[in-house]
């Protein structure tokens, strides 16, 4: 997948996951989103990150698997821009490779898990009755399962397979709490008159869920997705640290940081590039999420308290 293509796809999922295709609304939200400086800055940073992650590796002659036996633990230099590790790997090449992995894993898993939570929670909340009971049993079951253990046990099975499976696994153990929250919101939204109005018009239940319920909890879903990005990157790190997830010689930002923390004070180049990139990524996602939420709230007028009511009753 090309960098640009991925960015676009990413943007689209971010737009549509909590908010299904609605030409009128989508366009208005986009317009209001673009008016927000911070949000656009975030988006630009995110695009640059992707560009860096996918173009960056071609700028240096070193591969992340290569080892330079002449340079062990040397600082940044003309040959090795970010220095080298204990075994002579090029830190720049590794960081770029790690950024690729982390960006994809983090963003994809976050969007997947929030999307799943939204769909399952809203379905359970809207239909109620047996649908609700069965879905919530399933959620509770997943909640009590030790997810880390399961990931640890199953990860050998996935060795050598695509990292996409890893993404799906990460998402699969991350959506339950949000799903319960979404269900609660959906239950209260179901009682609202605009839902009744839609039902009376004969709107299909699934359409009510995607068009009326989910957009009305967009704030929650966007915040959840934003937090999940950071969360999954960290989760991936800890799994990788224990030897599951991303395996050497492959790297992710998480593994680089985990390896570098011990020597952060003595050999800072092992640690800082990856750390700073991680912080920048999570921050950019947060900006975009904030901007998106504000754009939607603003469009609906819920955030703007400067409305007509004034102060007088």
């Amino acid at each position: 997948m090309t960098a640009e293509g991925l960015v676009l796809a990413e943007e689209e999922t971010a737009m549509t996951a909590p908010e299904p295709v609605a030409l009128g609304r989508g366009r208005i939200v986009l317009r209001r989103f673009l008016r927000r400086k911070l949000a656009v800055t975030g988006l630009v940073i995110l695009v640059l990150m992707f560009a860096l992650a996918f173009i960056g590796p071609y700028l240096t002659s070193w591969n992340y698997k290569d080892q330079d036996y002449n340079n062990f633990l040397t600082g940044p230099s003309a040959t090795h821009w970010f220095g080298t590790t204990q075994i002579g790997s090029d830190v720049y090449a590794q960081t770029m490779r790690g950024l690729q992995k982390s960006l994809i894993i983090g963003l994809l898993a976050a969007v997947l898990s929030t999307g799943l939570a939204g769909i399952v929670g809203a379905t359970a909340g809207y239909f109620g009755g047996w649908t609700d009971r069965v879905l919530m049993w399933f959620v509770d079951l997943l909640l009590v399962l030790p997810s880390f253990l399961i990931l640890a046990i199953t990860s050998p099975l996935f060795h050598g397979r695509t990292w996409l499976l890893f993404v799906i696994l990460l998402a699969a153990f991350n959506w339950m709490v949000t799903a319960r929250m979404v269900r609660g919101l959906a239950r209260s939204l179901r009682e609202r008159e605009f839902v009744t109005a839609a039902e009376v018009m004969g709107v299909h239940p699934l359409r009510i869920i995607t068009r009326h319920l989910l957009p009305n909890m967009a704030s929650l879903l966007i915040i959840d997705a934003t937090l999940n990005v950071g969360g999954t990157i960290i989760a991936e790190t800890s799994l990788s640290y224990f030897g599951f997830g991303v395996q050497p010689p492959d790297v992710s930002l998480g593994t680089i940081i985990a390896d570098g923390t011990d020597s952060a004070l003595n050999y800072p180049w092992l640690f800082y590039p990856a750390g700073i990139l991680l912080i920048l990524t999570v921050m950019a996602v947060a900006f975009v999420g904030d901007g998106l939420r504000d754009a939607m709230d603003d469009a609906a007028g819920t955030a703007a308290s400067t409305s007509t009511s004034g102060g007088a009753a």
Binding site: G24, R25, E193, F194, A197, A198, H212, N216, A218, G301
Partner: peptide
């Protein structure tokens, strides 16, 4: 209460 606050009027009218 009966108009979805998240939909512009055009979409609201187009829904039925």
């Amino acid at each position: 209460a009966s108009l979805d606050p998240r939909l512009p009027v055009g979409d609201l009218l187009a829904e039925p």
